[in-house]
Design a protein around this nucleic acid. Structure first.
Lengths: 120, 120, 120, 120
DNA sequence: GTGGTCTAGACCACA
DNA sequence: GTGGTCTAGACCACG
């Protein structure tokens, strides 16, 4: 597993998101055991502390759960991950739209920009 | 001047951006005097300190400059504001695109989301 | 009289200094009447308020004095202007030296810089 | 680290300059972690706010950068600090020369003053 | 623990 | 009146 993190943004949510993607895309299935906190920390070049918090946040949304002394496992209802992901996307997109509109752009201009910058 | 600020985001850059828009759109022209730091602070319900920081940031990009004891003025080259604005838009759009892509979305999916959420 | 003021620095002390120079260099002699506050203000593109303050500050150091309803005159002891000027120079030079030293420069490096930059 | 600040001048740029010197002189190397904002604040007897501003100004020139929740680090290209420093020196020296010239001094007189006052 | 942002209020020199 | 600088203290998310 390659962990490509953008160092300019908070690491903790990025790890949560990447795990969500793994589950939503089926690379990790219901009941599967996740990598250990320490392994992820090493692979992603982060402190275990940060990974631990990511896992705990995913537990709160019901995406994964922990077995004492055994590790972390994907929730039986793996649809939750997809829901969380699409909620994230929706939230971020609306924030972006609000931002662009407050900068005076119309929806047409926004779409034009997206198309233009997506080629760079 | 109406100051609509999103309290969920840092206020300082929002003020800078709104001023940039005023200048780029020609509502404030080269050499024009800006509202005083204190007046903007009252109008935007922010502390003068925050406005001061906004103005200083705009000064660094060359959009405005200050005259001691007199006020802040729009830079002679008012084109700078436009450049700064489009730079901002570009930067934010690219960050958004990177974000969406790392969440596993294709450019088509991104465009679909934008269109969908822009109606809400 | 040409008034070349550096707009980046406080205007009031600059006017005081220029007047001091006029007196110290003999272009204005003991007992001579100075230009009116208003004339200086127009010539130097400053508000009369600023010129007024410059004159008052020069009065405090004894360089000039005012006759009610008549104007401002060079003090009988025109040596005072020279003293004030050299005091200023000394003060500014010591401030500059302190500044350069706190930036880690030796006196030799300072002299080298002065010579180098004086040709630009 | 000893923080000797001249209370007569703005503290914020003084802190920036001292840090620049530490980096330019190699006492802090590329990638090194700086002291925390709070620690510098205590050591220099200033508020954390002032130090934060100093660090942010150095960040804008590319001398240092911040890692959220972790600290501030010397930029990989530690040559920038030297460039910034010499730029500062040059700028201040030219301002001083302009000032002295507008006070009517020749370059020879300026050099004489420097030599004389550097012994006091 | 760290940086990041903001509030509240003060003081100064300048115009 | 204006900008410029600083203090003091608060809250937040991140590591």
């Amino acid at each position: 597993m390659t962990w490509i993190l953008d160092k300019k943004r908070p690491l903790c949510p990025q790890i949560s998101e990447q795990l969500c993607i793994l589950i939503a895309s089926g690379q990790l299935k219901a009941g599967d055991r996740l990598m250990s906190v320490r392994d992820v920390a090493v692979a992603a070049s982060v402190t275990p502390n940060t990974v631990q918090k990511s896992f705990e946040q995913l537990e709160q949304t019901g995406v994964i759960y922990s077995k004492r002394g055994s590790g972390w496992y994907v929730s039986e209802n793996s649809e939750i991950a997809k829901t969380v992901l699409s909620g994230l996307i929706r939230e971020k997109t609306k924030a972006y739209l609000d931002d662009m509109r407050s900068l005076g752009l119309s929806i047409e201009q926004i779409l034009t920009n997206i198309k233009e910058y997506s080629y760079e």
